[in-house]
């Protein structure tokens, strides 16, 4: 699934961004050997301070498996400042309906080969679909993207070949880099979706993502039955109620019930129940 983090919601997703900066350090500092600044295991540059938009691929557990960064071409961006070699010193394009995408990366260590979910190919296609659709929804018509030849091959193989290139291919670390042009047309998006067999909406909403991370944290921090004792009938009842709750109201009702019956629990149990009904649920 794809989460979009920008200047408006980045305060909610600090840990996701940290994971992404670490992935970027492994990919650009390590595998590609680019001359990037890595501090504390994270690769962060001057453009990360300009409130770019990040399109981030997450696996089902909420781990960052792919990411890319987008900036407007009307203002400061990488091709206008640091990638001038690629443009042979020429002025970069500037357009209200063209965004620049940089730092495209996929976690090849966590992901598998093949084409199914959790593969490099799936994560790459999902991220491409997410970025193209995010651009299209913003009224953007073209993307200029700085990529390496491997990524270029991946795009070609995924039914998503760039329609042209700008400037020249230049050496950068262990691999060359180039600037490719992609349109955000329906044809391109549906071609990619067809290739990857991804039919569903790839985006995860802000609230949904927050809930997922909350649940993940709760599950690792304090499972309600961390003593591994079998659940009592009453606990099982709560779990059933919680997992069948469809709305926030129903969820709140269960929490109130737990609160009301709290004298039957130890304070610890109660806290755990209230905090982690979801983590609790999968133990049932």
């Amino acid at each position: 699934m794809i989460l979009v983090v920008d200047g408006l919601n980045r305060h909610l997703f600090g840990e996701v961004l940290d994971d992404m900066f670490e992935l970027r350090a492994r990919v650009f500092g390590g595998r590609l050997g680019w001359d990037v600044n890595i501090e504390d295991g994270k690769e962060i540059d001057q453009f990360d301070h300009l409130d770019p938009a990040y399109v981030i691929g997450l696996d089902d557990e909420g781990n960052v498996v792919a990411a890319v960064r987008a900036l407007q071409t009307t203002g400061p961006h990488m091709l206008s400042d640091v990638f001038s070699d690629i443009l042979c010193g020429e002025a970069p394009m500037r357009s209200a309906t063209m965004w620049e995408s940089t730092r495209f990366c996929v976690d090849t260590q966590r992901l598998t080969r093949g084409k199914e979910k959790n593969s490099v190919s799936y994560a790459t296609c999902e991220l491409m679909i997410g970025s193209l659709e995010y651009c299209r929804n913003a009224g953007i018509q073209d993307i200029i993207t700085v990529i390496d030849p491997v990524m270029n091959r991946v795009l070609k193989r995924s039914n998503c070949a760039p329609y042209d290139y700008v400037g020249q291919t230049v050496p950068m670390g262990k691999v060359p880099a180039m600037a490719a042009l992609l349109d955000c047309s329906e044809e391109r998006i549906s071609g990619l979706r067809e290739f990857a067999d991804i039919r569903h909406d790839v985006f995860i909403e802000e609230e949904e993502a927050l809930e997922m991370f909350e649940a993940k944290k709760a599950a690792t921090l304090s499972p309600a039955n961390r003593d591994h004792k079998p659940l009592t009938d009453l606990e099982k009842y709560f779990v059933e109620q919680m997992s069948s709750a469809k709305t926030e109201e129903e969820r709140q009702a269960v929490l109130k019930l737990i609160e009301a019956l709290s004298d039957t629990f130890t304070p610890e149990q109660k806290t755990a129940l209230l905090q982690t009904p979801r983590a609790f649920a999968h133990e049932a």
Binding site: R94, S95, D164
Partner: peptide, 17 residues
């Protein structure tokens, strides 16, 4: 010998500049 779309994006950029 470039694509029609390449011409289009360059023109768009020139217009804006």
């Amino acid at each position: 010998s470039i694509s029609h779309r390449t011409v289009e994006v360059h023109l768009r950029s020139s217009r804006e500049k």
